Simulated assay, not measured.
Amino acid sequence: MSWLVTGGAGYIGTHVVRALDAAGMQPVVLDDLSTGIESFVVGDTPFVRASVLDTAAVIAALIEHNVEGVIHCAGYKFAGESVKYPLHTYQQNVDGTRSLLEAMAVAGVRLLVFSSSAGVYGTPSSPVVTEQTPTEPESPYGESKLIGEWLIRDQVRATAGTDAALAATSLRYFNVVGSGFRDVWDASPHNLFPKVFAAIEAGNAPQINGTDYDTPDGTCVRDYVHVSDLAHSHVAAARMLAAGRGLAPVYNLGSGAGTSVREIVDAIVAVTGTSLVPIEAPRRPGDPARIVATGDLAADDLEWKNSHSVREMVESAWASHPHGS
Rank of each mutant, 00 (worst) to 15 (best):
V5Y: 02
A9Y: 02
A9K: 04
T14E: 11
V16F: 05
V42E: 15
V42I: 12
R49S: 01
S51D: 10
I59C: 13
A60F: 07
A79H: 02
V83C: 04
Q91N: 11
D95W: 15
V106P: 08
R110D: 14
L111V: 13
S115F: 05
S115L: 07
G122S: 06
P127C: 05
V129S: 05
V129R: 03
E136V: 15
E136R: 15
Y141C: 04
G142S: 07
W150D: 14
D154I: 01
V156R: 09
G161S: 05
Y173S: 11
V176C: 12
G178N: 02
F181Q: 10
F181I: 03
F181T: 05
R182I: 07
D183I: 01
A187W: 09
P189N: 00
H190N: 13
N204Q: 15
N209P: 10
D214L: 04
V227P: 06
A242D: 10
N252F: 00
L253F: 02
S255G: 14
S255Y: 06
A267Q: 12
L276V: 06
A281G: 06
R284K: 15
D296H: 14
L297Y: 12
A298Q: 06
D301A: 13
S307N: 13
H308F: 14
R311S: 13
S325D: 14
S325R: 15
